[in-house]
Design a protein around this nucleic acid. Structure first.
Lengths: 249, 249
DNA sequence: TAGTGGTCTAGACCACTTG
DNA sequence: AAGTGGTCTAGACCACTAC
């Protein structure tokens, strides 16, 4: 008697919408194609714009869509795999071309960093900012915290900040004997400065990679790298294997 | 004359609210404490409930809050660090106590999995479901895809599914020569079945860990593990180092 | 200037947990 | 039955981009 699925589906509208849109993206759209605007999509599906936006937010979180204010919503390319974490412990390399030194100064780190480095709160450390670019787009912003005691022989250039200073600190680190490298990954939301560097709005989802660099005696440096969660797939330890490309639908 | 920051702050209300609440959580609340309900909080801050919810969603994404329908909003404990990824390549262990075999059957995997395993679409593979528990709470759900050709000597128990069948497949895997193990991490949203297993709502943010198990000749198995992004911090390769505890505010 | 996505409001009702 | 968070609506205005 006209019994459809309607009564047995306690599924939220936005979730159902997400599924419908996701399938449409698979079959009827190509990468880079622009979708109809939100007001039209909402009308087409017979829902409020806020509900439609909930579905779009899900798809953006999953890396399927790319939304830009003033421009529109486009179909995102598959996430780029960025290699994070070499086979063994290794210092960040000053001549590394995946990371670009941006700036550096001597400043007091957040309390959580002081704690991790076993320093009293308020003690200044060398703070190196680096930026990672892939395929022409910024994908990560890094803050590297180095206690002064880790680089006793550091000879600074004249400038109190800038890329040259950053490279000096990175070069000096190579002298230390690195024995271990603990990494962790967690979800976070971009702070205002990271967001600007990553070309996103504050609060955008990011993958935070924290790396502890330890020498035989102690924790010598701490790196906090913030990756765009919408566009990046972090890859680890390609131990002899071949990188497998996806997106071959 | 009464010039405050108001006019120079194009910062969204929900973002400012997030900051204020975050600082309040640091100084005035303890883990497990329940916050006032959303309607009261919204009234207290003079914003609409939807705006207040945007701030709470951010804090939940960052693992600071725990919200449960019908119950309330509580202050979340620090994220638990879950070790994912041993030092070298290793098969999932049947007697591993961090992972618990849940179920197993022979079924056709999603198209993306077929592609990665270099199988024609529609070919059935052994699918093993496992569940990971930490501190009494479910933290991850895993789907392990094993082509029949990878376990030719598999002797199945009578039951066509169930934990016993899962263990049989896992045991048989140990016989293969594992040479590499490629891992990647990306952000995703929980599908309905994962969400139920993780005690979350559909669409909840998760960290998806994909592992490729390769033998000398080919890709022999594929694991897709879904971790709760709100409660988990994934840790990698503790190469001789000591796990550093956080939360020592 | 027109069109886009981003923010915000003030309501309503629903699903769920708890007493 | 009462109280909580989750969903949804129909509007308004703002910030940004591009023409």
């Amino acid at each position: 008697m006209g019994t459809t699925q309607l009564e047995t589906v306690p599924e939220p509208k936005y979730w159902h919408l997400r599924t419908v849109l996701s399938e449409a993206l698979d079959s009827e759209f190509t990468v880079g194609e622009v979708l109809p605007n939100e007001r039209e999509l909402a009308a087409r599906f017979g829902v409020a714009r806020a509900t439609l936006r909930q579905a779009l937010e899900q798809l953006e979180l999953e890396g399927r869509l790319h939304r830009r204010r003033g421009v529109g919503t486009t179909v995102a390319p598959p996430r780029v795999g960025v290699e994070v974490g070499p086979d063994g412990p290794a210092w960040p390399d000053a001549s590394d071309d995946t990371w670009q030194p941006v700036d550096s100064d001597l400043s007091t780190p957040p309390a959580a960093v002081s704690t991790a480095l076993a320093l009293p709160r308020g003690i200044a450390v060398h703070t190196v900012r680096r930026s990672r670019v892939s395929h022409g787009h910024p994908v990560a912003a890094e803050l590297l915290y180095v206690p002064e005691s880790s680089v006793p022989g550091l000879h600074l250039p004249d400038a109190p900040s800038g890329p040259a200073r950053a490279r000096a600190v990175l070069r000096e680190l190579q002298h230390l004997d690195l024995v271990a490298q603990n990494r962790s990954v967690e979800l976070g939301s971009a702070r205002a400065d990271d967001a600007k560097q990553l070309d996103r709005l504050p609060g955008a989802p990011v993958l935070v990679v924290t790396t502890h660099f330890t020498t035989p005696t102690r924790l010598a440096a701490l790196s906090v790298a913030t990756y765009r969660a919408d566009t990046c797939r972090l890859t680890f330890g390609a131990t002899g294997g071949v990188e497998i490309e996806e997106g071959a639908a």
